[in-house]
Design a protein around this nucleic acid. Structure first.
Lengths: 201, 201, 201, 201
DNA sequence: CATGAATGAGCTTTCATTCAT
DNA sequence: AATGAATGAAAGCTCATTCAT
């Protein structure tokens, strides 16, 4: 989560000056996150992870008996699909575009951009990753639908259309990282929110 | 492109009875396409490709000196971004949704679902694949914009919004495979076309 | 010696109710005995021993600084070649077969079947184990010879033949475990005793 | 089978002078045979095999994808339990001891002493090896019984006793290697044959 | 005494790639 | 052109052993 390069060699020396040098396990996960995001899970050697984490190779396997455990742990600990119940949504009816935009800004995905790239890339081949991504997608759709129903002025209209709108919104939100990579320029979630709301009124 | 399992053992025997047993090079590409799509490029061993293609291991390297050449060739020969010029678009103004839906049905991507999975998965780490995907995305956006401009009733309205609409449309079109994997059920391009048009009128 | 599975989890809880939960060192040896017998010394990891003994890994090395020490201790403490002097043999002359059978039943080898398997398997490669097995073999031959000399009716006859008989008897006694594994059914020491005596009269 | 040390470096140079330098696969098996016999299967590293065979490490796995395959192949190709049918037994009745002694001298096990050590050591933990050893044991018992029935003067007497005699004979024959290691001096199969026959008449 | 994180050498195995035929 | 034996670097993983606490 925190860029390990900020720490490395020098940081260790100034231990005690404030922030603590993260423990080995954390450093391993930090390193793996960066490397998996950069080159993909398969192309990343555990030795490389160890090197970047500045731990001996054996320690990686002490914490994560198989390489895949690093990925699974990463997804398990560093992506979170927050439950909606917590934060009461108190959207005033009449501003669905604003509501969606706000939702976009607090996507229930607590995950660094790096984690998101990992999520998308590895979901294709690793079931556990895929499942987590599915949960996330479902949660976003659920929220978007909820918000839209609450804020859309004249009833919610066609249910199927609303569903499609929510799904599209979720897709753009989730894939914005990949899309950015593709097109070279950011897709603006706000613009998409606006678009979708226009389609529904 | 053609499911190799239709050939295999039995097919070889009935050689000459009509369809020919594909040549070694083709069989190698067929095998690679399936395997790369299934497990990813990195996780696929060349020996595995050779085995599935029913050719000796050495022959793979005879045609494709390095492993990466198989991927590059696959993307080069089995994905095609058709140029728009060929087929004259003669959309009547007044039916933008229908026009988009028609566009969706003849996406200019000549690529099997397997090739599309490969494209998306490997674009992240392989520049040449990424470039091909970018071309494709740009082409779809260009077409969608063109079609919309042509068919939308009252002028094209806000240019930025039209751009966003086209980009969203392209994204959904390109990623429908991945999205299906995620959500478990198809996203209907027709529905999205409808949605987008509604947003623009 | 005592099946550890009788203890494990449940036993620990009823500590104090009669039998005591064996101390850590004993449990380590119990575990090692089972594991060495089952998979061989080389194939058994110390971590595995610790796990089965329900002790932390470090404790194994606390008691047995090197892995080989576990084996040596096991052989040293859990195989015993009793000296004949202790129990006075008071065989009446005239029943050599019975005498041998009785000897077979109180072989001077105080060792569980597991320990015997270990003994045979590891003797081949570990000098200290081999030596112990040699002692044992010698002692059995000595006793068998003694008993036979005492009980055989008409003098002891050919010395060389008596020696061969005693050695054969010892071999069958020692290897009955291995032989059982080989043939699938027990070899009956009594039958062999009978056989041998018949050969000598 | 043939001591590889006879070949090694120097031998290769005199290639063409008569005997051929064995091919890589053979050299690997030769090396494995020696090393497994000496230190046991588990304690022998494949790298060590490769080194002694003077082949690159990778080639071992080219021929034997898993280490265990080396052992299995060794047992499969370099131990042979000859079938009895071939060589007609034409023992004259009346000399059972001589017949057994002759049998002992042409044990139906075509295997080097090294292979025999491997057989005994690894049978305990490797099923395929155990099975081979079982076959061998059964065959010897079968032959010994047959020979005894044929040559014993007054009928074959007690069937159970004859069985025990044959089993004992087989055991001594098979384990003479191990027994030698134990006692330090050969057990004489002839003597045992004599012993057994005496017991049966 | 007891513990479990830490260590690194070494193991089996994989694999892209070469090359003689 | 076609083949499969050969190669060796590197991968994932194991494991005895150490050591600070």
């Amino acid at each position: 989560m925190i860029n390990p390069s900020l720490w490395s060699r020098a940081a260790r020396r100034r231990s005690g000056t404030g922030e603590a040098w993260p423990d080995a396990r954390t450093r391993i996960l930090d390193a793996a996150e960066e490397l998996f995001a950069g080159g993909g899970y398969e192309a990343t050697a555990t030795a490389e992870i160890a090197k970047r984490a500045e731990v001996p190779k054996g320690l990686v396997f002490h914490y994560f008996p198989r390489k895949i455990d690093v990925l699974v742990t990463l997804v398990g600990e560093r992506t979170r699909v927050d439950d909606m119940g917590d934060e009461p949504v108190e959207e005033v009816p009449g501003d669905p575009a604003g509501a969606l935009a706000r939702l976009a800004r607090r996507v229930p995905l607590r995950a660094s951009p790096a984690m998101r790239r990992i999520l998308f890339r590895e979901a294709d081949t690793h079931g556990s990753v895929r499942e987590r991504l599915r949960n996330l997608n479902a949660e976003i759709i659920r929220r978007a639908s909820f918000v839209l129903e609450l804020t859309l002025p004249g009833g919610r209209g066609d249910a199927a259309r609303l569903e499609a709108a929510a799904a599209t919104f979720a897709a753009v939100l989730l894939y914005q990282e990949s899309l950015c990579m593709l097109t070279g320029h950011h897709i603006d979630p706000d613009m998409v929110a606006d678009l979708i709301v226009r389609a529904l009124v």
